[in-house]
Simulated scan of single mutants.
Amino acid sequence: MTPTKPMEFTPLADPAAQPSAGQAAALYRLMTWLSPAFPVGAFSYSSGIEWAVEAGDIVDVTTLREWLASMLAEGPGFCDGVFLAHAHRAAAVSDDATLRGVAELASALAPSCERHLETAAQGRAFVEIARAAWNCDGLDRLIAACEGAIVYPVAVGIVSAAHAIPLALTLHAFLHALTSNWISAGSRLVPLGQTDSQRALAALEPDVAAVVKHALSATLDDLGSATFRADLASMRHETQYTRLFRS
């Protein structure tokens, strides 16, 4: 496996300088909201990975990484990133009509019953917890403007915009959390050791960065998926005889 390249940082004028209060708050909230400990139930979903393991499509860390790279770039990773970006932008300028349209489209484009359950249940939990513990001015109005189900990426976009957290940071954190959860599911199902799981996450770092860049510049007309096998996996999981996960 190719070693991870070291990051290139621009030296600070003052290496001892502290982040601004806004930067520190944004980091704290993103780390909290997109942590595995945040109670949206992400651990109970595998996005069809459970069926892919049973079918023999995923058998080791290499095949898991290849499967997830496709899901990121050509499937739900990219699509969720686009929905998050457009929801965040609409919420940031209080464009209720656009926000409602994005929320409706994101809910309608789920390719299977279980995929819809996964994203809708997590979105609902995210909104409920945000309103209970992380409410802020304007958040309730933005949620009400959607007038229906709010799927997970749209929920994250709305809440982060209401808290004035920059879109690019939110999107990167969201896709990292999504990838981490997929790897966690794969590590339990294959199974994989902790070291191999971290190797997979490290190897997917450039894939996540590329999807963030693509999603930030994409329009809703650019939405589309080419992960037919992964979509079939989520459909066939509905009737899988032995299941540990809800999707």
Score class of each variant (00 low, 15 high):
Met1Gln: 10
Pro3Phe: 09
Thr4Tyr: 10
Lys5Gln: 14
Lys5Ile: 06
Pro6Cys: 11
Pro6Met: 11
Phe9Trp: 15
Phe9Val: 13
Thr10Gly: 10
Thr10His: 12
Pro15Tyr: 09
Pro19Asp: 04
Pro19Ala: 04
Pro19Phe: 06
Ser20Gly: 14
Gly22Phe: 05
Gln23Ala: 13
Tyr28Arg: 14
Tyr28Glu: 14
Arg29Ala: 07
Met31Pro: 03
Thr32Val: 11
Thr32Gly: 06
Ser35His: 04
Pro36Ala: 07
Ala37Glu: 13
Phe38His: 05
Pro39Leu: 07
Ala42Met: 08
Ser46Cys: 05
Gly48Gln: 01
Ile49His: 02
Trp51Ala: 00
Ala55His: 06
Gly56Phe: 05
Gly56Ser: 04
Asp57Val: 08
Val59Asn: 08
Val61Trp: 11
Arg65His: 07
Glu66Phe: 05
Trp67Cys: 07
Trp67Ser: 06
Leu68Trp: 00
Ser70Trp: 02
Ser70Thr: 04
Gly75Arg: 00
Pro76Ala: 03
Pro76Met: 01
Gly77Val: 02
Val82Asn: 00
Val82Glu: 01
Phe83Asn: 01
Leu84Ala: 00
His86Val: 02
His88Lys: 12
Arg89Pro: 04
Arg89Val: 05
Ala91Tyr: 10
Ala92Ser: 15
Ala97Asp: 13
Thr98Ser: 13
Thr98Ala: 13
Arg100Ile: 05
Gly101Phe: 09
Gly101Ile: 08
Glu104Thr: 06
Leu105Trp: 04
Ala108Trp: 06
Ser112Phe: 04
Glu114Val: 03
Arg115Glu: 13
His116Asp: 12
Thr119Asn: 05
Gly123Ala: 07
Gly123Gln: 06
Ala125Glu: 10
Phe126Cys: 04
Glu128Ser: 11
Ala130Trp: 09
Ala132Lys: 11
Ala133Trp: 12
Trp134Phe: 15
Trp134Cys: 11
Asn135Met: 08
Asp137Ser: 14
Asp137Ala: 14
Arg141Glu: 15
Leu142Asn: 10
Ile143Leu: 15
Ala144Cys: 07
Glu147Cys: 06
Tyr152Asp: 02
Pro153Met: 03
Ala155Leu: 06
Ala155His: 04
Gly157Phe: 02
Ile158Asp: 02
Ile158Lys: 02
Val159Phe: 07
Ala161Lys: 08
Ala162Tyr: 10
Ala164Glu: 15
Leu167Lys: 05
Ala168Ser: 15
Thr170Phe: 11
His172Tyr: 07
Phe174Asp: 01
Ala177Cys: 04
Ala177Ser: 09
Leu178Gly: 01
Thr179Asn: 08
Ser180Pro: 05
Ser180Gly: 14
Asn181Lys: 09
Trp182Cys: 06
Trp182Glu: 06
Ser184Thr: 14
Ser184Asp: 15
Ser184Arg: 15
Ala185Cys: 14
Ser187His: 08
Leu189Pro: 02
Val190Trp: 10
Pro191Met: 09
Leu192Phe: 00
Ser197Asp: 07
Arg199Tyr: 08
Ala202Glu: 15
Ala203Glu: 15
Leu204Glu: 14
Asp207Val: 10
Val212Leu: 09
Val212Met: 07
His214Pro: 02
Leu216Val: 02
Ser217Cys: 07
Ala218Trp: 10
Ala218Asn: 09
Ala218Thr: 06
Gly224Gln: 06
Ser225Met: 04
Arg229Ser: 08
Ala230Phe: 00
Arg236Cys: 09
Thr239Pro: 05
Gln240Ser: 09
Gln240Thr: 05
Tyr241Lys: 13
Tyr241Thr: 12
Leu244Glu: 11
Arg246Lys: 08
Ser247Thr: 03
